[in-house]
């Protein structure tokens, strides 16, 4: 398996989109720290950028990559290799390549400029989101045979998790504002890895104090160690379940 993974990683790190992505993250992170000075404000800027950019690039690129690798997968399938091994290699290869890009673009400058628990959490969330959205991309790509439709689905997933979901939650909060919905909102947050990631980082900063009643419940939950572990576990579920479903589908798929 690691042979194919190595092959894919060395193919991906020469991909100019991936290089550009890493360089952009690096420059943006440096930029935020130059403009905002040290501290939480810069971290918040980097956080917002990360939550927008990381899912988008990851999901779109991974989907395209799967479709472009189709003929190569056929060639690999003609070898005495198990199907699950081929998909696992692609998953792992994308994960390592994107992990490196995030590590270089985000991890490195934060480690130098702002080595705090918040920064560590931010990089951790970025890595988790990377894995999650690679899994979602593979799910879409394995499920949908047509490239254009697969791309559409992948884009929709991004818009859903970054925009539509928040809109729906706001709508709900607005309509039910007379009820004690703090706990409910907490559970709804678990349904969106992007929001969950945002809160996991926000709760480590001073900005958490500015949030209202729901914020208090969130703060209580996320600043306890078991709350953090629970949210990490939920992120892991988000990372594993779509990938697991895509593996199941790939096993019986006609290629």
């Amino acid at each position: 398996m690691f042979n194919i993974t190595k092959f894919i990683v060395s193919d991906l790190i020469k991909n100019w989109i991936l290089v550009l992505y890493s360089v952009f993250l690096l420059l943006a992170t440096l930029g935020f720290f130059l403009l905002e000075g040290q501290g939480d404000k810069a971290i918040l800027g980097v956080l917002n950028l990360t939550l927008l950019l990381v899912p988008m690039i990851t999901v779109i690129f991974s989907t395209i990559y799967y479709y472009n690798m189709y003929e190569f997968m056929v060639l690999l399938l003609a070898q005495p290799l198990k199907r699950s091994r081929i998909l696992a290699s692609i998953f792992l290869g994308l994960g390592i390549a994107f992990g490196l890009a995030v590590g270089l673009g985000l991890g490195l400058p934060l480690w130098i400029l702002h080595p705090t628990p918040v920064a560590l959490m931010l990089v951790g969330v970025a890595l988790l989101l990377t894995v999650i959205f690679i899994g979602l991309a593979l799910l879409v790509a394995v499920w949908v045979r047509d490239k254009a439709r697969g791309m559409g689905f992948a884009l929709f997933l991004w818009v859903y998790f970054v925009l539509i979901f928040d809109g729906l939650v706001l709508l709900m909060m607005y309509n039910f504002s007379d009820y004690p919905i703090g706990k409910v909102v907490l559970f709804i947050t678990f349904l969106n890895p992007v929001d969950l990631g945002r809160i996991m980082v926000l709760m480590q900063t001073e900005a958490a104090a500015l949030m209202g009643y729901s914020g208090a419940i969130f703060r209580q939950f996320f600043s306890e160690w078991w709350g953090l572990i629970a949210s990490l576990l939920i992120m892991l579920v988000w990372a594993l379940v779509p990938a697991a479903i895509s593996f199941r589908m790939f096993r019986v798929k006609d290629l």
């Binding site: 092959f7 894919i8 060395s10 193919d11 991906l12 020469k14 991909n15 472009n68 690798m69 189709y70 003929e71 190569f72 056929v74 060639l75 003609a78």
Partner: peptide, 14 residues
């Protein structure tokens, strides 16, 4: 089995 497919495409940067 040795298989030669109808169409081949390989990873771009290899």
């Amino acid at each position: 089995i040795g298989y030669m497919p109808q169409m081949s495409r390989f990873p771009a940067n290899m």
